[in-house]
Computed example of a mutant assay.
Amino acid sequence: MITYPFLEKKATIGVTAPSSGVEPELYDLVKLSCSRLEGQGFRVICGDTVWTQDKAKSSPAMKRAQEFNGMMQDEAIDLIIPPWGGELLIEILDGIDFDTLTDKWVLGYSDTSLLLLAITLKAGIATAHGTNLIDLRGEYCDETTAMWKSVLSTEAGASITQYSSAKYQKIWQHDHPSPCVFHLTETTDWKTVSGDKVKAEGRLLGGCIDIIRHIIGTSYGDVQNFRENFINDEPIMWYLENCELKTTDLRRSLVQMKLAGWFENTSCIMFGRSPANESVENYTIEDVYQDLYNELQIPIVYDIDCGHVPPQITFVNGAYGVVEVEKGKGTIVQHFKA
């Protein structure tokens, strides 16, 4: 069974940095994000790790793990959102007390997706792959990003529907801030390898492939145990996004996932838009998707609203998802099924 947290109104948000913290020149971004959330009725508590950053991490692994454990066990905190991702979250996994995790939401993406996936796989607690704290600093949120609150406020047993965005952001323009943070200028177009309409369903799992591939073969990435003990061998529907990998490295990672059994009984694989996907010797990203389709013979959907090219849908690890894609538009229904 999957356990689903529930976000109450006027909840308390704990901000901790299990990966990267924030350097002094960017403190104002965190403070503004916290202020925006407080203006919506939330209470925000920032941990010490948020305000430090050195050697590609907010603080030593044990301190990061202890602060996260503390917030998970603090009954006064209802939701945990890191300021953003980073590079070395994997260092803290051995320090996370998975046996005492409480059913509260953890929300984020990028390096944070490793923690999200590990929590769901090991503990059967749903986690939310979506916006990070820094991207909530705008005067308002675009329609896609804003759904995070509705998704996290969905009751167990109920369902929620999200739609593909109308526009996405091609280029970050930090020197020209937007009222909604993102500069949404490009027309969103969800694609399928087959070119046909796709409808698929299954338990959602995923994250940033650059990061989550590193728990293959470890106790934190035991997908088979998750299938047997939490979802009764229901099909899995993967959502993946690529932050920095060239096409050949992405291909190697996908083959490794396949060899490790991660794609057994998989109904569909969805890929987010990517700032990477650089071709190698004429081996394009479309070639990668086609090769995967040829091998698995399941729907492959790409350029969805997920990851480092915003905005992004809030995907819930462990939820039962139904995705439909037709003529460039997508719909994802998430059933909070035990």
Rank of each mutant, 00 (worst) to 15 (best):
L133Y: 08
E286F: 03
G217Q: 12
G328Y: 03
A123L: 02
S253H: 05
V223F: 10
I304H: 00
L259I: 06
N282C: 08
M62E: 15
T187G: 04
K55E: 15
T112R: 03
T16C: 15
H308G: 04
T112D: 06
D48K: 06
I332R: 14
G70S: 05
V22G: 13
G70T: 02
E324I: 13
A11L: 09
G85R: 07
L245E: 06
A128H: 05
L152G: 11
E25Y: 03
V301P: 05
A156I: 13
A56T: 15
D74Q: 05
S33I: 06
A65R: 11
G202M: 07
P24Q: 14
M147E: 05
L240A: 00
C46I: 02
L133D: 07
Y302F: 07
D303W: 00
T185M: 05
S113Q: 03
L88K: 08
F98K: 12
Q53S: 12
G21R: 12
R137S: 09
C141W: 03
A200P: 12
Y293V: 01
N132P: 03
D210Q: 11
R43M: 01
M147N: 04
G39I: 13
C180T: 01
G86Y: 07
T112V: 13
V106F: 09
G124C: 07
G70C: 02
Q256R: 05
L259F: 08
N225Y: 09
Q297K: 14
D189L: 08
D94K: 15
L245N: 08
H176T: 15
Y109L: 09
D48Y: 01
Y4S: 04
S164M: 08
F271A: 01
H183T: 00
I119Y: 05
D305A: 00
K170V: 02
T218A: 10
T331C: 11
P179A: 07
K258R: 11
F182A: 01
C141E: 10
M147G: 01
L79H: 11
F271R: 00
T144M: 02
P310S: 03
V255W: 00
V255C: 02
H176A: 13
A17M: 12
Y289N: 03
I80V: 15
V280A: 09
G261L: 08
Q53Y: 15
A61L: 15
I125T: 11
E244H: 03
V223T: 06
P177W: 12
K246S: 14
A11G: 07
G202P: 04
T188C: 09
L121I: 07
I332Y: 15
G108I: 03
H183E: 02
T331I: 14
S194K: 12
D287S: 04
G330I: 09
S159E: 15
G124Q: 06
W51T: 12
M257F: 12
P24L: 14
G47S: 01
V255Y: 03
V325Y: 03
T144S: 03
D97C: 09
S267R: 04
R213M: 09
K104A: 14
L29W: 11
D94M: 15
H335M: 10
S33Q: 05
D291Y: 02
D135W: 00
V181H: 02
L259A: 13
T102A: 14
L245D: 07
W238P: 00
M147S: 06
C306P: 00
N277M: 11
W148I: 06
K329N: 13
F68D: 01
W148R: 08
